[in-house]
């Protein structure tokens, strides 16, 4: 394992909001999703479900109801929580499920980046409309869209709050 490569991928991943055309091979999509399911989850409940949208017309329809989605991605992964499964986490089940799918989402974006594919997580979309468009059942809740696509424009890294500001050793 090469630590430098991991750090390079973590630091190099950017939110891409401008894509060029280019089909993402199925084997890449498979690798990306596999990274998703290897995320940790509370109680190993794995409350996630992923809907992979590659159909151009459907991508355009999702764009219509997603004000926070910029650019023309080749693929949209709708990251969902299965509420039935999340229930197994007790009263904190749903909030824990959000943490779980977030970890899966990060894995997905990191592996996409390692494969040369740009991505962006999007929370600004209409869940109601996406549920209707994709026939998502009541017990499944879409949480995040992840756009995927090739790009010629990797954005500059936005500033991070420095370690000194956000890290507290031993006590706050």
């Amino acid at each position: 394992m090469c630590l430098e490569d991991i750090i390079r991928v973590i630091k190099g991943r950017r939110c891409v909001r401008s894509f060029r055309e280019g089909e993402i091979p199925n084997e890449y999509i498979h690798k990306i999703l596999e990274a998703g399911i290897w995320a940790p989850s509370g109680g190993n409940i794995q409350p996630w479900e992923f809907i992979v949208v590659r159909n151009r017309d459907m991508i355009d329809k999702i764009k219509l109801v997603s004000p926070g989605l910029f650019g023309d991605p080749s693929v949209i992964i709708v990251v969902c929580i299965n509420l039935e499964k999340a229930k197994r986490g007790g009263r904190i089940g749903e909030s824990m499920a959000i943490i779980d799918v977030s970890m899966a989402a990060q894995n997905i974006m990191l592996v996409a980046y390692a494969l040369g594919i740009g991505s962006c997580p999007i929370v600004s979309f209409s869940k109601t409309a996406v549920k209707e468009l994709l026939d998502i059942p009541k017990y499944v809740e879409p949480i995040l869209l992840i756009t995927l696509g090739y790009t010629d424009k990797w954005p500059n890294p936005p500033a991070r709050r420095p370690l000194e500001e956000v890290v507290h050793y031993e006590k706050y």
């Binding site: 355009d60 219509l64 109801v65 997603s66 004000p67 926070g68 600004s124 979309f125 209409s126 109601t128 409309a129």
Partner: peptide, 17 residues
């Protein structure tokens, strides 16, 4: 595909969002 409809969808979903 209609540009006016696209704007309309954007406005309605934004209003809720």
């Amino acid at each position: 595909k209609d540009p006016h409809f696209k704007l309309l969808s954007f406005l309605i979903t934004s209003a809720r969002g």
